[in-house]
Design a protein around this nucleic acid. Structure first.
Ligand code: NAD
Ligand code: NAD
Lengths: 225, 225
DNA sequence: CCGACCTTGTGACCAAATTCTCAAACTCCC
DNA sequence: GGGAGTTTGAGAATTTGGTCACAAGGTCGG
């Protein structure tokens, strides 16, 4: 009865887009099949992981040959929901929101920005990336009429939780948050976050470790260079 | 002899910035101490994880009381290398690069953007976010003179690997890549990536799962709504 | 100084993710 | 058709991360 008994591990889901990207590239250059080894190299992971990941989706490979690029691409697209396109709304059209609105790379992957929303009356009516910025008050109507499922929050941190609430009330069930703050959403709503400062801080941690290690060696060897 | 026997798990390192953020907030409102429970709530994790994470750093809490906000903040800052400030160069001053250059939130955390670099001669000489865009050819000099350790790649994907190579040759040992492509760096160089399309694709995966489940229920119950 | 109460720090346990390994299944060439 | 060479798929082992549970160590009022 369970047509889809396969629960796909989170870590695998997070890698599917990498494989997707690699496969699009292979398809563009008309490569008919690809081995887990080659795919691993392109996606920056190791071959055993590629095979294990695909095994959660089903047995789509052929032993001694590899994977059919077109077929695998289709299976992964389907799994990721990229065979349909997703209307997206961006809330907060400042520096970052405008950059996102101007980015042409999303539509290539099936994400269509259908609305830009800002609380600042001075911004509303302005055109950004081919769309007119609309007032926050219209969010419920916009989400309902344009069937928006995904919302991107690019407001200051102080407004993020409130905006998330408005998005969810309006009917959005997937949220991507760029504001550097923790926000809560009800169960049944997906939330992901991107925090650039955190990425830099993680780099800083390892950078400092290396610097200290280098300093340690310099002192230990009494080197004056 | 091992002054720092503590190897801090990667997952813990990735959470330290969350605690850091929460602690800064507590410090601002002059809260003297905080419990792991409260901190967990603010960082969006659970209390046991907070305590375990801190236990890798050392025993900085007081039983029955909690953690001294100022002291813990200092320890985490030190661990993350935020007691010094890090000069950062951004390569590729397009939509995204310009948004990053204009962002005031980095300096608050000890990251100082000291140079903007672009390959396009038309962009060089222009001012963005208070800095003048400089030519790619000057990268080695810029990195050396301004002691840059961290580089941000915001160029198109096709240029990312080449730029990474230039950054590393110039002496950068931490790289943050925004281009949607896998790049390789030599051992001893840290690399992190942020790919917004991937985040959307992950949301799309779970969104689709929910939609299918809803559809399944609708059909199963023969509901006409 | 005692006892009620609170909160940390950590060992034990459990879950998830990764890696190793190799039989099975395929191609290709002679 | 058979044998050499590839490459998958998946069980087993290992590593890493997360959660639980509670003793140990502290506060505080009386
Ligand atoms: N710009 C960057 O490169 C960058 C980098 C890292 C993080 N961020 C984060 O992204 C978010 C946006 O950054 P930014 O630089 O674009 O800021 P910004 O100040 O340029 O833009 C914020 C926009 O949000 C709008 N806004 C404010 N409150 C709102 C509300 N309640 N509803 C709707 N819109 C509202 C403002 O009118 C403004 O247009 C911030 O949280 C910031 O910390 C930005
Ligand atoms: N804009 C966004 O919101 C967004 C979102 C997701 C991902 N990205 C990714 O971020 C990157 C930048 O996006 P963007 O929208 O800013 O693109 P963009 O085209 O606006 O800017 C790219 C900049 O890089 C410069 N450049 C090109 N080759 C270079 C080289 N070899 N060395 C130095 N500079 C070079 C160009 O002159 C240009 O100024 C892209 O890889 C894009 O896929 C952007």
């Amino acid at each position: 009865m369970p047509d889809r008994p396969r629960r796909i591990p989170e870590a695998t889901v997070a890698r599917l887009p990498l494989y997707y990207r690699a496969l699009v590239e292979m398809a563009e250059q008309r490569t008919p099949t690809v081995s887990s080894e080659r795919l691993a190299e392109m996606a920056g992971v190791n071959a055993a992981k590629v095979r294990k990941d695909f095994s959660y989706l089903g047995s789509y490979g052929t032993r001694g040959v590899g994977y059919d690029v077109e077929y695998l691409l289709f299976q992964i697209s389907r799994e990721l929901g990229l065979t349909q396109d997703w209307p997206v709304v961006i809330v907060g059209i400042g520096n970052l929101g405008a950059a996102l609105a101007n980015y042409r790379g999303f539509s290539a992957r099936g994400f269509r920005i259908v609305a830009l929303v800002d609380a600042d009356p001075a911004k509303c009516g302005k055109e950004v990336g081919g769309l007119v910025v609309e007032p926050l008050a219209d969010l419920p109507r916009i989400v309902a009429e344009r069937d928006v499922a995904i919302g991107i929050i690019a407001t200051p941190a102080a407004a993020a939780q409130e905006v998330a609430g408005l998005l969810v009330s309006a009917g959005v069930t997937s949220v991507l948050n760029f504001a550097p703050t923790v926000i809560a959403v009800p169960p049944g709503v997906s939330l992901r976050k991107v925090d650039l400062s955190i990425e830099l801080q993680i780099l800083s941690f390892y950078q400092q470790r290396r610097d200290e290690a280098a300093e340690g060696r310099r002192v230990a060897f009494g080197g004056l260079t």
